[in-house]
């Protein structure tokens, strides 16, 4: 879907913040799309991973409203394929952290049903809470 980016909304502080938090030189992205092509969650995403890179590069804080960073499961598929050796899993983590550090959880840990609670392995619960709660 075509999307109009308003450059007057460019927030360089946002780009700097994400660059620093992720430790990734986001502006190096060449928009090849390899990351999006291999992402196992791309069909569920509202904005695909390479678009996220572009939007962050252009300081578009609106990416904070996207589902993409929450869907990224740090599977590192894109990490091993990026021709620029960029690590998108770290960019997603940085975006998640910006939200979580504002003391806003992405999931309600009390919403797990009793049936699921008795079934879920610890590894899933710990992993989920680490990624979705601050």
């Amino acid at each position: 879907m075509a999307q109009i980016i308003k450059l007057k909304d460019k927030n360089t502080d946002f780009l700097e913040k994400i660059t620093e938090l992720s430790g990734e030189q986001i502006t190096l992205c060449e928009q090849c799309g390899t990351c999006s092509a291999g992402c196992p969650f791309v069909s569920e995403m509202d904005i695909n991973p390479s678009q996220i890179m572009r939007l962050v590069m252009l300081g578009q804080e609106s990416v904070m409203d996207s589902k993409t960073m929450w869907l990224c499961a740090s599977c590192f598929t894109c990490t091993v394929r990026c021709p620029r050796k960029l690590d998108l899993s770290k960019v997603s983590e940085a975006l998640r952290q910006v939200k979580l550090r504002g003391a806003i959880d992405e999931i309600d840990i009390k919403e797990i049903s009793d049936e699921e609670a008795l079934k879920l392995p610890t590894i899933a619960v710990v992993g989920s809470f680490r990624k979705f709660t601050g």
Binding site: P40, F41, E44, L71, A73, S74, C75, T77, I107, E111, I112, E116, L120, I123, A124, V125, G127, S128, K131, F132
Partner: peptide
């Protein structure tokens, strides 16, 4: 080596089913 959906199994099991 395709991801199984990982911890999404806690709050988004549909994705896991698909994968």
């Amino acid at each position: 080596s395709r991801c199984c959906g990982s911890y999404h199994t806690v709050n988004n099991v549909e994705i896991v089913y698909t994968l």
